[in-house]
């Protein structure tokens, strides 16, 4: 097309293209045509200036800022859907709630695991004898049968010897009472191996000496270790002694205590510590005694005749001779 044949822009088209001209959106040919039109058209020049002013003013409006309060209000705008979505998002939950739930979950998992695991089948826990302290439990004390427990016997005798050497604790002379008063268990001395044993020792001597448990065991040491017995089984090796601990609270203890002492003696009870039966300690009475196994039931009936008895069977390193049980009875004076 020749230069003279170009169609001239109409005012309408030129005005409509002014904004694109200002924002540089026209191609070269159109741009040149608009420039030529503007030179000759006064209205186009006015509009061009208006557009430039309008753009400049609009640009200045960018500097308007929203106040912090209004922005905060807008930032926290929620509707039901957005609120439910936010609450459903774990990361948006409050820290305290999240950590509480984590702690709860861990607690539940731990409790579930403890409940599911069959603890009784695990040897580590199975070997430990357990008892319910609140229950009335009557169990037979396994007396010493095997000669393999000689070391234990010697340990017991050494304990007795220590009792004699160290003297009475808490004024009672009874190691069990001292143990209960302090809350600590006595440490068992590991006995040295017994090498030389006189062959002439008799088994009856051992039975008598272990049953009485007098705290002067020195003469007994040489005779006990020679008790002939069948070879120990693994169960016997694992066996331990027991002590029955009984507690009572009685009113009018001053009158009842001598009666109990008398009845215990009638049942064959012999003191096992250094203090006499019914030893007075504060407002209570203390009985540490050994008892023939056959009198156990009668003892319980006798004690129940005076009031409720709480009794527990505790494991103890000291093993009583067969047919003998060891009791520690504490009677507290009260209503």
């Amino acid at each position: 097309m020749k230069e003279n044949d170009k169609r001239k822009l109409t005012p309408f088209l030129a005005h409509e293209m002014l904004f694109d001209y200002v924002t540089d959106q026209l191609d070269h040919e159109r741009r040149k045509a608009v420039e030529e039109f503007i030179k000759e058209d006064r209205e186009s020049q006015n509009l061009l200036e208006a557009i430039q002013r309008g753009i400049s003013y609009a640009e200045s409006l960018k500097r308007i800022e929203i106040s912090a309060e209004a922005l905060d209000e807008l930032d926290h705008s929620e509707n039901l859907v957005s609120l439910s979505r936010r609450l459903a998002r774990w990361s948006q939950w409050p820290d305290s709630l999240r950590w509480s739930l984590v702690a709860l979950m861990i607690s539940m998992c731990t409790a579930g695991t403890v409940m599911i695991i069959p603890w009784n089948t695990i040897p580590l826990f199975k070997s430990t004898p357990g008892f319910e302290s609140g229950s009335f439990e009557i169990a037979r004390v396994q007396g010493r049968k095997a000669g393999g427990d000689d070391g234990q016997i010697v340990a017991d005798q050494q304990e007795d010897g220590l009792d004699a050497q160290t003297g009475p604790l808490e004024g009672s002379g009874d190691e069990e009472f001292a143990e209960e008063s302090s809350g600590a268990r006595p440490t068992i001395q590991v006995p040295p191996p017994v090498v030389a044993v006189p062959p002439a020792a008799t088994s009856t001597a051992a039975t008598v000496s272990a049953a009485t448990r007098v705290p002067t065991p020195a003469p007994v040491q040489t005779t006990v270790a020679h008790v002939p017995a069948p070879a120990p089984t693994s169960a016997q090796k694992a066996s331990r002694g027991y002590v029955y601990r009984a507690f009572m609270t009685l009113s009018d203890l001053e009158n009842i205590a001598p009666k109990i002492t008398q009845q215990l003696k009638e049942l064959g009870a012999e003191k096992a510590g250094e203090v006499e039966l019914g030893w007075r300690r504060g407002s209570g009475r203390y009985y540490h005694f050994s008892l023939p196994e056959m009198s156990e039931q009668k003892l319980m009936e006798t004690l129940r005749g005076y009031g409720p008895v709480r009794i527990s069977k505790d494991p103890h390193p000291r093993v009583m001779p067969q047919g003998q049980l060891r009791f520690i009875l504490w009677i507290e004076s009260g209503v």
Partner: peptide, 19 residues
């Protein structure tokens, strides 16, 4: 923007009838 610019200039009534 053309109308805005005319308002800025105080000549809103000067808009082209066809524009």
């Amino acid at each position: 923007i053309r109308q805005l610019g005319l308002v800025v200039r105080g000549q809103k009534s000067a808009l082209s009838p066809g524009a």
